[in-house]
């Protein structure tokens, strides 16, 4: 009872495990035995991390879910929307970024939608530039793309793409309060 009261007062019920420690719990063996694709996602700004598995597909959009019901919807690995993070991403226009990753124009427009406190949808326009990031020395087999978006809340996303052209790690911005999601594809589709 006292513990419960402590929880209510200090919102400390889910003792945060550091994402790195959580990630370390997943051994290579365990990952090899997985029957379904899996993501490991951490959100450093809200101090949370979890694994997600696909639960639904709507056309090109795949919906990934944590054990407690939070969801991330992705299209080709790019975040379209989130559920259950609090200040969620309601929708995102991905045509520009998807084309840029595929080799199209590196400058494009993009919108992100969020639900405001009065339940209105705020659609915010951004101008983005996608370019290879050569700031750090890195494995030549990996392409690192950096997306810089200027707009109401400027943000920078990172996309790591392997030799086969698969997005295996990314850092994608959700909202000012949630910050970035760091998304690692632990087990890709076979």
């Amino acid at each position: 009872m006292r513990w419960l009261l402590f929880c209510l007062l200090f919102a400390a019920c889910t003792a945060p495990i550091p994402p790195a420690a959580l990630r370390a719990q997943l051994t290579t063996d365990q990952i090899a035995r997985l029957q379904v694709p899996m993501l490991f996602v951490s959100a450093p700004q809200i101090k949370t991390a979890a694994t997600l598995i696909p639960v639904r597909q709507n056309g090109p959009v795949r919906i990934w879910q944590t054990r407690d019901g939070a969801q991330i919807a992705t299209r080709d690995g790019l975040v379209v929307a989130t559920h259950g993070l609090g200040f969620d991403l309601a929708a995102s226009d991905l045509d520009g970024i998807a084309a840029a990753i595929a080799g199209g124009p590196g400058e494009y427009k993009r919108t992100l939608s969020h639900i405001m406190g009065d339940l209105r949808t705020s659609v915010q326009p951004y101008r983005c530039v996608l370019a290879p990031d050569r700031s750090k020395p890195q494995n030549p087999a990996i392409t690192v793309l950096r997306e810089d978006c200027r707009g109401p809340d400027p943000f920078r996303n990172l996309y790591h793409i392997d030799a086969k052209g698969r997005l295996f790690w990314s850092q994608q911005w959700v909202s000012p309060k949630v910050g970035h999601l760091e998304i690692e594809v632990i087990r890709p589709d076979k």
Binding site: I63, D68, Q71, H83, L85, F87, D88, M116, D118, S175
Partner: peptide
């Protein structure tokens, strides 16, 4: 505080059920 600024945004509801 401001009623139009919810402390938890659009909340922690589970995503739509599969």
């Amino acid at each position: 505080l401001n009623p139009t600024r919810p402390p938890h945004g659009s909340g922690y509801a589970r995503g739509p059920a599969t």
